[in-house]
Amino acid sequence: MKPRQKRFALVALGVAALAGAVTLVLTAFEDNMVFFFTPTQIATHEAPQDRTFRIGGMVEENSLERGADGTSVRFLVTDTAHRVAVTYTGALPDLFKEGKGVVAQGRLGADGVFAASEVLAKHDENYMPPEAAHALEQAKKAQATVVQ
């Protein structure tokens, strides 16, 4: 190949590769733009029925049950409007906690229970020292008693 042809081939290859990459990524993006579905979306049948997807929300307080085998767990995911029961067997991430955010991948069974194959913890954008977090909790509790 002459240098000019070689150069042209290189450019064409580069542009084609770039176009291919962009198309691939965009089509993948189209399907997965929504990283997870909320319990409300599941309740209104917006979530896919026949394939795996992710569910996201808050682990409801006092809903975590540990199985007798020690590795299987069951908990409720809530977005305050709707709730979905989730089962999972395996190690949970460090930040998995009741009252905190969670994203679980899996399939919704016919029994309405979401069988998760992977559980991720979703944390918020607040960063504070433990004392501040403790003070905040106390203030919340105090407020709750005042309201009652």
């Binding site: 733009m33 990283f35 991430p93 460090d94 930040l95 998995f96 994203v103 913890a121 979703k122």
Partner: peptide, 11 residues
């Protein structure tokens, strides 16, 4: 260590 995964195809 926080989410439980190195990578996810999130937006």
């Amino acid at each position: 260590p926080t989410w439980g995964t190195y990578w996810a195809w999130d937006a």
